[in-house]
Structures are given as structure tokens and as C-alpha cells.
């Protein structure tokens, strides 16, 4: 039994009110919401897949692509914005050739924004695989990304 089935087993005869908990659990176990997973949930809840996609895209927490090995989360909260997080984000998009919510084809990098990390004192703040980086500048970000690339090329050798 795959991950979606085992989640759905916990919600027998569920109605549409169970949608968000189900999406959260599926994402928890699979890392993202795949097309097949959404189709399966749609059958289980008797809700159009489009409806589920509409609900899921409303919330920032749901992803539709698997996370990359190096997962960047750039804070776009007010404090970070004032401190220039938009430039950090631009640099991230340029360096990684990704837009927010996307994962590189080789699944090495993924990029995401978040409304606030609750670390405004460290603004602009960014996290890499859950590890916080304080007072990030575009230059600092370039270095961080380069380091990730170096580890990758070492692993390949």
C-alpha cells in the first residue's frame, strides 16, 4: 500500500471538511502533492480534482513538486522585505533558474517563499533544509549556492 492509501485509510467515509488534514498528511509522508495523489483523494472525497487543486494552491504550505536535496526557503515577510529580501529572491531565482515553488529537474535544488519565519530580528532571513541563515545578502546567497554545488560535484566523483 502506498503513502496515499495509508493516509486515506485513516479517513474512512470522510467528507470535504477532511480535505486539508488529508492534504497535510499526504504531503507529510510523500513530501509533496503529486497529481496521482490528488486524483486519488478526489475519488475518496468525491470532490473534483480541480477543487482540491484550488484549495491547495490557496495555502503556501502545499507543494506540487518534490523537494530538492537543497531546499531553499526565502522569507518574504514585512521585516525581511524592508531589509531587501526581494533582491535575495531575485538572485535565488537567477542562480537556481527556478521560480518559487519549483524544483530543478535533477531534484537537487528547490525554491520556496514563506510569509514569515518568525525570525525578524535576523532579517533578511532564509533557510536551507531547515537551517537558518541570518542577514542574507545576494552576495552571501551566491556563496551558499556555490557551496551546495561544490558538495554535489564532490559526491559525483
Amino acid at each position: 500500500m502506498n503513502d496515499v492509501e495509508s493516509v486515506l485509510k485513516k479517513f474512512p467515509r470522510a467528507g470535504r471538511d477532511a480535505l486539508i488534514p488529508i492534504l497535510q498528511e499526504v504531503q507529510e509522508s510523500m513530501g509533496y502533492l503529486s497529481r496521482d495523489a490528488v486524483a486519488r483523494i478526489s475519488k475518496h472525497l468525491d470532490l473534483p480534482a480541480t477543487k482540491i487543486y484550488g484549495v491547495a494552491t490557496f495555502y503556501n504550505q502545499f507543494r506540487f513538486q518534490p523537494r530538492g536535496k537543497h531546499h531553499f526557503t526565502v522569507c518574504r515577510g514585512t521585516a525581511c522585505h524592508v531589509k531587501g529580501s526581494n533582491r535575495v529572491m531575485e538572485m535565488a531565482e537567477k542562480m537556481l533558474k527556478l521560480k518559487a515553488g519549483e524544483t530543478s529537474r535533477d531534484r537537487v535544488f528547490s525554491l520556496e517563499t514563506v510569509a514569515c519565519m518568525g525570525a525578524c530580528g535576523l532579517s533578511p532571513v532564509m533557510s536551507l533544509n531547515g537551517e537558518f541563515h541570518a542577514k542574507v545578502t545576494p552576495q552571501k546567497l551566491v556563496k551558499i549556492i556555490q557551496e551546495c554545488r561544490e558538495t554535489e560535484s564532490k559526491n559525483e566523483c
Binding site: L47, P48, T50, K51, Y53, G54, T57, F58, Y59
Partner: peptide, 10 residues
């Protein structure tokens, strides 16, 4: 009763 289209995003 189809639901082929929906508001996406926020």
C-alpha cells in the same frame, strides 16, 4: 456538477 475549473492561487 462538473467542477472542471476553479479559483487557483490566492
Amino acid at each position: 456538477g462538473i467542477g472542471a475549473i476553479e479559483f487557483v492561487g490566492r
